[in-house]
Design a protein around this nucleic acid. Structure first.
Length: 568
RNA sequence: UGCCCGAUGGUGUAACUGGCAACACGUCUGAUUUUGGUUCAGAAGAGUCUAGGUUCGAGCCCUAGUCGGGCAACCA
């Protein structure tokens, strides 16, 4: 009997509603199925880079282990040497670590179990539940039947245990050519579940493996290796995506035949994000056809892309928490991802002045050659971030969008005879402007009110707008890469008749060669994140040098003026 | 013509063993603001795919259907 007040447990439960997997685990804990243990695993195949969808799975698996005080293994599902490479192993480890998860010494490889798996396959053969088939892949496929018609049994299905054992060993020893023989489970060629129609368990591949070298000529298939690896590692809940649902009977069949510890496979819906694609194949296509500049292009939904884009690990974890876990597949609005990063960066990113589309403004009544150092607050959300000095002078750059020749009444910025505050500096009044032959505005003239200085304003003037600026004399020229969504369609891969690449956004990257930033940014280091006041969050790109500073747009600030302007 | 899974506001997720549908994002209003940011206050928006059934009572249970997704790699 516990003396706990029922209200306490109720309150706890209402704090964070449980997802169906947690409910399932609670049930197993209640019945003592796994002795109250919770042991999960994240099992990537090292054949590509991790993306935000994997992040969901990582957060889920490691998160479950944390919640239930269990363990989560990192296991590389490396059973196919033709596509897998060590380079991917390294990038995956790097990404998981970056996301903030620690697998301690629980780092495994399915290839570590090849000997055990081989022995288990022999055991299956001895039990009369597996056989070597001499037919080609095409022949096997032809006999498989269709979802509505049963398959036909292989003529090699009833070989003797001895012959199967001998043949399997010779497969291992490299006596046969690739594709000439395959080890199959002997289950049921008439099963309504296609995966139960004598699935392949081992195939011959005379290819060196990134870890086992040329030791093996045969490699286990996913269905054979995965569940057994789970069992070997003592996994209790083997969480995977929905497409493996139909594999579950096979997963269970294999473990039931061969091992005592039988994990529970649970499937959940993979993540889909609007305005992007998530399949490895499609992402690879974007990279190979140079639609993006590599796997870590900031427009890619890969972990490395998001990292270069300026996303924080915490924002991604929060995102994963917020989207929840269920079996229904849908499409998450990228606005939620963007909200997660804004939420985090708002609290931690220092504010800074950056003019992306420069327009010179000359303060005609300000003394020539004079410089003032003004005090600027680094982060209004975090006093401990301190203050800094900002040089001000007669000539400054402002953003072109902050001036209109003929502004509507709702526009709060600069226009002929209008007043605006230069943030941390003075209030200025536009007294005129110059245009070139094409009618483009080339320069603004203004007069400042000396008594309106920030912090000691005695002018009594009231202005509706405050704009950012950078002193011409002190400006740091930088390259700013403005990123926008990669696709123009909400579900680019969802059109049966059209290739997803038709929806590529031609304006997903705009490189601004000459942006002007405040001088403090020269001290920035790759990975640093800032808020360019009134514009958005930016991070320092790895390409950054003090000779040529480079910044990436992570996400723009919310912009209610854009909404007003849009409405007209 | 088979098997498996799913269906709750615009989007995603909730609703303890049935008890008058909640949270987040988004949208809209207003306040504050030396960021048209943030913050704060508030609003609109679903009656839970359909039809039956069980029940005092159904989003939750049962039946049938509809719609959506998945399954026939020697890929994972």
């Amino acid at each position: 009997m516990s003396g706990k007040a029922p209200s306490a447990t109720k309150q706890e439960a209402s704090k964070s509603p449980k997802n169906f997997i947690e409910l399932r685990i609670d049930e197993d804990n209640k019945t003592g199925r796994f002795g109250g243990e919770v042991h999960t695993r994240f099992p990537p195949e090292p054949n590509g880079y991790l993306h935000i969808g994997h992040a969901k799975s990582i957060c889920l698996n490691f998160g479950l282990a944390q919640k239930y005080k269990g363990k989560c293994n990192l296991r590389f599902d490396d059973t196919n040497p033709v596509t897998e490479e060590d380079e991917y192993v390294q990038s995956i480890k790097n990404d998981v670590r970056w996301l903030g998860f620690d697998w301690g010494d629980s780092e495994f490889f399915a290839s570590d179990y090849f000997d055990q798996l081989y022995a288990l396959a022999q055991k299956l053969i001895k039990a009369g539940k597996a056989y070597v088939d001499d037919q080609s892949a095409d022949e096997v496929a032809a006999q498989k039947g269709t979802p509505t018609e049963p398959g036909k049994e292989s003529p090699f299905r009833n070989r003797s245990v001895e012959e199967n054992l001998d043949l399997f060993q010779r497969m291992r020893d490299g006596e046969f050519n690739e594709g000439s023989k395959v080890l199959r489970a002997k289950i049921d060629m008439a099963s309504p579940n296609m995966h139960m129609r004598d699935p392949a368990l081992y195939r011959i591949k005379k290819k060196a493996h990134h870890r086992t070298g040329d030791k093996w000529n045969i490699y286990p298939m996913y269905d054979f290796a995965h569940g057994l690896s789970d069992s070997i590692e003592g996994i209790t809940h083997s969480i995977c995506t929905l497409e493996f649902e139909v594999h579950r009977p096979l997963y269970e069949w294999i473990n039931n035949q061969l091992v005592d510890h039988r994990p529970q496979q649970i499937e959940f819906a993979r993540l889909n994000l609007s305005y992007t694609v998530m399949s490895k194949r499609k992402l690879l296509e974007l990279v190979q056809q140079n639609h993006v500049n590599g796997w870590d292009d900031p427009r890619m939904p890969t972990i490395s892309g998001l990292r270069r884009r300026g996303y924080t690990p915490r924002s991604i974890r929060n995102f994963a928490e917020r989207i929840g876990v269920a079996k229904r597949d849908g499409i998450i609005d990228v606005a939620l991802l963007e909200h997660s990063i804004r939420e985090d960066l708002n609290k931690v990113a220092n504010r800074v002045m950056g003019v992306l589309d420069p327009l010179k403004l000359v303060i005609t009544n300000y003394p020539e050659g004079e410089t003032e150092n003004l005090t600027a607050i680094n982060n209004p959300e975090d006093e401990s971030a301190g203050k800094r000095e900002l040089p001000f002078g007669r000539e400054i750059y402002i953003d072109r969008a902050d001036f209109m020749e003929d502004p509507p009444k709702k526009y709060f910025r600069l226009g002929p005879d209008r007043l605006v505050r230069l943030k941390y500096a003075y209030i200025v009044k536009c007294t005129g402007y110059e245009k070139d032959d094409n009618g483009n505005i080339t320069e603004i003239h203004a007069e400042y009110y000396p008594e309106s200085k920030s912090g000691q304003d005695t002018s009594g003037l009231k202005v509706k707008g405050t704009i950012h600026w950078v002193s011409v004399a002190h400006a740091v020229k930088a390259e700013v890469r403005q990123y926008d969504r990669l696709f123009m369609d909400e579900d680019p891969a969802g059109h049966k008749e059209k290739d997803f690449k038709e929806f590529l956004n031609p304006d997903s990257l705009e490189v601004i060669e000459k942006a002007y930033l405040e001088p403090s940014l020269l001290k920035a280091r790759p990975g640093d994140r800032f808020q360019f006041e009134r514009k958005g969050y930016y991070c320092v790109d790895p390409d950054f040098t003090t000779e040529k500073p480079v910044f990436n747009l992570t996400v723009t600030l919310r912009d209610s003026w854009a909404k007003i302007a849009k409405k007209g």
